[in-house]
Design a protein around this nucleic acid. Structure first.
Length: 479
DNA sequence: TGAAATGTTGGGGCG
DNA sequence: ACGCCCCAACATTTC
């Protein structure tokens, strides 16, 4: 009988889990470990001790702790640097083999390589698995073995490859292999876990854990056929809200793909596409890690955003005087969630109307989004800023008022998060400064801010800025 | 997974 | 009846 350590990271579940499934074979006793990584959490704790993501993680962990209780087992939970902690656990529990699922972000790759090296140096083995994606970055390449740089051909190749993979592999987990650990301190409730991690919780709209994730998935399957239409309307509950469950692995990506493939309609296809976008941006980040700080399109390297700190602050606070923008940002601040369309509208607005550096917006979202994932967030911001790979062209600028009228026609979403506007009529609520008749009790500038910029003027400024940056590069080349 | 500017067309008012 | 203008509606181009 050997001992296996399964290191859980962004895969907080006990079902359909590649590393855990392989670890829990009949000759192995399974030890589970989760580490609150101090490199990630220390700075986060300083900035936001009420970070909702820690709450989500804790809820997800508490759920599997409850499941493990029946085996007298527990997840071994530590706080610190995995490069120190994993070897310590290997020594303390006399582990023979370490198992974990691969993660493709630069930080994770570096960390995992370091951990792997220390384990190998101890004469033990490390086994890693594909789990959090259908295809790893290196798996879907074009005819010349290069990564795709345009989404559509990538998705075509991805879907073709998926066909050849069906039925999707499943990774069942034997429940009788967990090592009993009665001596291990039982961090088995949300309160104990939060206290251990050193965070003070903020309330969550989405409850963490596999049970909730699978329930949401089942609920979403009922309305998935309408997804292609309903997903565009923030006031309609038309999206899956599953990204955060996928992010932390409460459910597997295979759980989701199986659901998408279970229906043959446009809605299901569009939804599957979103999962492909996620993997597409992982490919881009994997092969072009410089996108972390630079535009994918090099011609925009010289693009310098004026970046008014005042505009940025008002954007963050939801006080720009553009109702749909303010409602979206307040929603993000209050819930940690933002509707996909509003992510595009707000990102376009910050970069192309407020002329604030896209990285500032990306960073703010990275702090606030429950479902924050480096590659997707970066890809989305670069797409919106018009500087990314297969991005919206720079001259495609969302008009917040037009978007608002189209996708929140009766102002329902705006009223939910900007209650001071609730008495404006359905036409005027989108742009109070051009209102025909405001309620007597309502005064612009007192109850709600005037627009902090002139849309038309700044749209023109943005076009000039982008245009000259793009041309500067071109001119430099010809010289 | 836009929007604005510009161009074209065609019906109706009117001399 | 005819030509002219206006302008809304739609199409195309441009950013």
């Amino acid at each position: 009988m050997s001992k296996g350590l399964c290191w859980i990271r962004r895969d907080i579940r006990l079902h359909d889990h590649a590393a855990l499934s392989h670890c829990a074979d009949q000759n192995t006793q399974v030890y589970l470990a989760f580490i609150f990584d101090n490199d990630i959490l220390d700075p986060l704790k300083k900035r936001a001790p009420g970070d909702r993501r820690v709450q989500f993680i804790v809820e997800s962990l508490a759920e599997i702790q409850a499941q493990l209780k029946q085996y007298n087992a527990t997840v071994i939970i530590r706080y610190g640097n995995p490069v120190d902690i994993i070897p310590t656990l290997v020594k303390d529990f006399e582990i023979d083999n370490v198992y974990f699922n691969r993660d493709y972000s630069p930080y994770a790759q570096k960390r995992d390589a370091a951990v792997t090296q220390t384990i190998i140096d101890m004469g033990k083995q490390v086994h890693t698995f594909k789990d959090c994606v259908i295809f790893e970055p290196t798996e879907v390449l074009n005819a010349t073995q290069q990564p795709y740089k345009v989404f559509t051909p990538y998705s075509t190749a991805w879907k073709l490859k998926l066909e050849s993979l069906l039925p999707l592999p499943t990774y069942p987990v034997r429940q009788d292999r967990f090592a009993p650990l009665p001596q291990e301190p039982h961090l088995d409730t949300e309160d104990k876990l939060l206290h251990f991690a050193g965070f003070t919780p903020e309330p969550l709209i989405l409850k963490g854990g596999t049970r909730q994730g699978l329930k949401r998935l089942a609920d979403f399957a009922q309305k998935m056929s309408n997804y292609d239409h309903d997903r565009d309307y923030p006031a309609i509950d038309g999206t899956s809200l599953l990204s955060v469950y996928l992010r932390h692995g409460c459910i597997s990506v295979r759980d989701m793909v199986v659901t998408a493939l279970s229906q043959h309609n446009i809605g299901a296809q569009k939804w599957l596409n979103e999962l492909v976008w996620r993997e597409f941006y992982q490919v881009i980040f994997y092969y072009f890690p410089q996108v972390n700080t630079q535009p994918f399109q090099q011609k925009f390297n010289s693009l310098v955003f004026p970046t008014s700190e005042e505009y940025l602050a008002k954007f963050k606070a939801g006080q720009t005087g553009f109702p749909i923008i303010d409602a979206a940002m307040r929603c993000l601040n209050q819930t940690g969630c933002m509707h996909n369309r509003l992510r595009m509208v707000t990102a376009s607005f910050l970069t192309k109307i407020l002329l604030v550096d896209w990285k500032r917006g990306e960073r703010y979202f990275s702090w606030k989004l429950l479902d924050y994932e480096l590659q997707s967030n970066n890809g989305g911001w670069q797409w919106s800023a018009g500087i990314g790979c297969d991005a919206a062209p720079y001259f495609r600028i969302f008009n917040p008022t037009t978007q608002s009228k189209t996708y929140d026609p009766d102002g329902k979403f705006i009223r939910q998060f900007c209650p001071e506007l609730k008495d404006l009529n359905n036409k005027d609520i989108h742009n109070p400064i051009e209102a025909n008749s405001l309620p007597l009790s309502f005064q612009l500038g007192r109850d709600y801010p005037f627009p902090i910029v002139d849309y038309k003027i700044n749209r023109k400024k943005a076009l000039d800025l982008y245009h000259s940056a793009a041309n500067e590069e071109k001119n430099a080349k010809t010289i």
